[in-house]
Nucleic acid binder design. Structure first.
Length: 246
DNA sequence: GCGACAG
DNA sequence: ATCTTGTCGC
């Protein structure tokens, strides 16, 4: 089976491929390491994020990957790739999946877990970016999104205390009623103004464990450290390319 | 037609 | 995502 996120597919072909991806995905724990291992530096976690070069035709994506073991960064890599289709809610993997796979191909280390910027199971067809790339690489993956694509929070997610989480149930536009993820307040101030992260299983991780992994990555900021590092690295490299191309 | 929408 | 400085508030 070829699950490659081919941007040339028709919209309906993309949607049916996502249903196949969801069927092949595992939303329960199938891992040989624990959140505790992540804390102790006995597991490799890779944060993946992107920056974009939109003032070009075609536009290009700069995909960055930062691998961490405990608090230390052991590898950073990136890839610059052409983008062929625009962003369409629900079809993000077909725009960014290829570019991300290109960056993962240059990795020398072999991460135990991937943290992607976007949704996993919190998706119309339970096949968001984290699930799509997770299934293709057959690597435990988690989706870390800064806003909610779909699904229904069981309770208000406003002003949660640091460490609190609220289950996200499948809604009427999704094929399941199960818990598809969690709103997770990684950081909070007394004023209670920071929005929570929306964590969901990508592949081979349950919704509960996905949150535990993010929590285990630590960091002083809202985003888990590997993701924050990847974000900064992507911006850094983007400037480099922008200057070179100027 | 209305509403809603990761990055 | 990206375009972008200062600024309101704890």
């Amino acid at each position: 089976m070829d699950f490659a996120p081919d941007p040339a597919l028709s919209r309906s072909e993309m949607e049916s491929l996502q249903r196949e991806i969801a069927a092949a995905a595992t939303f329960t724990d199938d891992i040989d390491f624990t959140p505790e291992d992540v804390r102790d530096g006995d597991a490799l976690v890779a944060g993946v994020d992107q920056a974009f070069l939109l003032d070009e035709d075609p536009e290009r994506a700069l995909s960055a990957v930062v691998v961490a073991r405990g608090g230390e960064v052991i590898e950073r890599t990136h890839a610059v790739t052409e983008l062929s289709i625009p962003y369409i809610p629900g079809l993000l993997a077909f725009r960014e999946g290829g570019p991300i796979l290109a960056a993962l191909d240059t990795l020398e280390s072999d991460p135990d877990l991937f943290l992607f910027d976007g949704s996993g199971r919190i998706h119309y067809r339970e096949a968001g970016l984290a699930t799509h790339v997770g299934v293709i690489t057959n690597t435990p993956s988690v989706g870390v999104a800064k806003s909610l694509l779909c699904g229904e929070p069981r309770a208000s997610v406003d002003g949660l205390a640091e460490g609190e989480r609220v289950a996200i149930d499948g809604d009427d536009q999704m094929p399941t009623d199960e818990v598809v993820g969690y709103a997770y307040q990684s950081r909070q101030f007394d004023s209670g103004r920071i929005n929570p992260l929306y964590i969901s299983p990508g592949h081979r991780v349950s919704a509960e464990t996905a949150v535990e992994f993010v929590a285990a990555c630590g960091g002083e900021y809202k985003l888990p450290e590997p993701t924050r590092q990847a974000d900064a690295y992507a911006d850094e490299k983007k400037q480099e390319y922008a200057d070179t191309n100027a």
